[in-house]
Design a protein around this nucleic acid. Structure first.
Lengths: 240, 240, 240, 240
DNA sequence: CATGAATGAGCCTTCATTCAT
DNA sequence: GATGAATGAAGGCTCATTCAT
């Protein structure tokens, strides 16, 4: 009835936190308590629907049905379907921050002998997280392939991983343990990508590889590739 | 007069000829000469448009405009937009058949000292091909992430690569040169994926890595990962 | 199902005739004969619906129902509801080109004594046309008040009228018949506006003024206002 | 809990108090002091927003944001967005009551020689007021073109002007100064409309006419049109 | 072989208004 | 008096595909 002909929307829309990856405009967070609960319900429902149908094939009305609120309510909390997707992405990212030098380990690795264990720990953590989030990871990669914004988001995430890994690799080279002929940044990109791709092939595409073999193979390849194969492996494990 | 209700969905593509890779139904190839020329024009135009807009965002009418024929003509040669895409996929695949043991090299590698050169040759060939076809590869991966059928196509292609690589790796293990603790199939999947992923990151996403560094890094990582780092490398090259 | 995320539409849309007021993009005119008939049916239907409901309150589906074609057909001929409206505007404009120096009269007025008759003729013609097109004129003014584009269209039309009138007024001043203290352009704007406004008040808003009184009053006011009241009026007519 | 179904449409505005100009229902005026202040804040904010966006394109939430109160507060003071608009209309009307025989002048004009000055005074006053209120006048005319209720409001206002002007014109005719062949009511409509339209063209549409030329031209045309051009003009002014 | 007109299901988004707190 | 969360109807537009000529 009213074709909102080129209405300005600036006044309504605010960026909540410039420090995050959120590029899209975001609504004010709800003040009251009821609002916070409704928002949470919606994000949970959105995740369910996105995992089932993907970003493209999902309908906002399905999300609101799932959350048991009216259609309009969705737009009290999100600017668009895309922003809701991004909220779920943020939630999933939370569960997948596993750099080469993991949370508790970064400062701890003083001894070269700890490196294999650390790499395995990180690979295992990443793979476990990926496996748990596989449904949504599939939808995220899908979105990244279709949506510029999510492509950038995904790239930024990968870059953060790679940068940290590159630092560790450089340290291993300086301390004389890793192959010095390799460019740390390129290697970090390649090996991180290897893990991410294989995780995708297995958990999303359904390639048949037992989980422990996945961990073992990737860890072994990391170590070999870096030239750390002479380092004694504590708690090592053989392929099944 | 009765159009198909709604859009084509994934489930709509049906198997007509299980003996081919083409799962979608296919038209008779044109007998006449004019027909062959029109079909070729359409495929070329389709490639142009798909590279520009992707499968999802492209319109059949754009393809026919580009080919300078009328809209209806398209359906004289293709059953659907998807089939036209698949024709381009086939064309591109033609240009990218570079397994670990390349065309001319497979039987030739009898000497372990040739392995590094062979691996480099294969990586280089793959990367060159990927670089040349990058525009379309991007669209292919995109389609694979959204369309069940193309996902299967892509997986099949990757599997063929991996299977051949796995054979070579097994041979290297049997001949005592490669790390015997690794499962050849898993390693093949991981390392092939590493190359494919990095190629994608660089040529599609625009990550900045000089081509020769790409070749060198990936080759070195392959060799190291397989435990071939004690094999003398002919024509080796250091990182820049 | 497919949120066409920021699709480029340039390739599809062409400006047909830069010499016209058409600012909006326009479709290719239909080649065939059936196409031309359908298009005409749609424009007629659009006019009916626009007159009944106005631009804002009309629905495209009403237009296609009226024209007895499917909804999609509309978009084979028009880029948008607005463009269809514009086509009707063009049609109506065709019927309302009545400058001060009318079609056949422009060159003919050599004698000052013909001026009153000419002015009356023009006023009458304009008023008759307005009365006949009143339903649509109402909707056009409405649209002009809400839509930048139609505002510009309306202004351009008014300016063309005013410019021609200004030329005639200047000629009357130079030949010593019209009040020389007046700026021709401003007078043309004022008097043209007077006629247009009164026509609107009477034919659209329903103010009660008999048609002949309208003609007489406006003609008299024109003549008086220009200071031509001493010119003998042939075929003059008194107020009822 | 049950919102009104769909949007407010023209037919929804109902008469509650035929003795007022306000046709729409009205709330009780607030008794308390805080209430009066909040109401004033809201009206000021409404004016700002209406001038910026117009009635159609404005949102109640923008008004309450501007007034720095919550959305619900709006409906403690106004029955609808339309009623708030009407309050602003009333405010603006207050500033534009300048009939042909102005406030202080009506009784004063006893001498025919004062008429030109009176007309000029009135035109100038009207134009000044219009210029000052141009932003809102634009939005009012806009609303009148879309909303039955405001169309009636505008027509009533215009009629009041015209009626008074008609009275004066009749007096001028009776006293032998104005062209007796003209119908006073029609002339009043025409000339009032001329002034209103030109004001609109200049101050709203931005047609380029210097203010003093506006006053002079319109006054001159009034005088000429009425046949008062032989009346000596005190303080006359020539066109630039 | 080529043409191009016709078809129609599908979904996102807005925002005035209500009312429980 | 003030708050702000919840409601839900309504419609513009796309484009793959068909088929009569």
């Amino acid at each position: 009835m009213k074709p909102r002909l080129g209405r300005a929307t600036q006044g309504d829309v605010r960026v909540t936190d410039a420090a995050h990856d959120n590029i899209a405009p975001v609504m004010q967070l709800p003040k009251g308590d009821k609002g916070r609960r409704t928002r949470a319900k919606l994000i949970a429902a959105a995740r369910t629907i996105f995992e089932r149908d993907g970003l493209l094939e999902s309908r906002v009305s399905d999300i609101t049905s799932e959350a048991d609120v009216s259609l309009g309510t969705f737009y009290n909390y999100f600017v668009s379907k895309e922003q809701a997707f991004e909220e779920v992405v943020a939630e999933v990212n939370e569960a997948m921050l596993h750099p080469l030098t993991g949370r508790q380990t970064e400062g701890a690795v003083r001894n070269i002998e700890d490196v294999p264990a650390m790499i395995e720990r990180n690979n295992r953590a990443y793979l476990e997280a990926y496996r748990e989030q596989a449904e949504f990871m599939r939808r995220f990669e899908e979105a990244a392939h279709v949506h510029e914004h999510f492509r950038a988001l995904r790239l930024a995430r990968a870059s953060r991983f790679a940068t940290r890994n590159a630092r560790t690799i450089a340290w291993l080279q300086e301390s004389g343990h890793a192959d010095p002929s390799l460019n740390p940044r390129y290697v970090a990109m390649a090996l991180s990508g290897m893990v991410g791709r294989l995780a995708h092939d297995v958990f999303v595409l359904g390639q048949d590889v037992p989980f422990e073999d996945l961990v073992f193979t990737l860890t072994r390849l990391w170590l070999n590739a870096l030239g750390l194969n002479d380092v004694p492996i504590k708690n090592g494990r053989e392929s099944s």
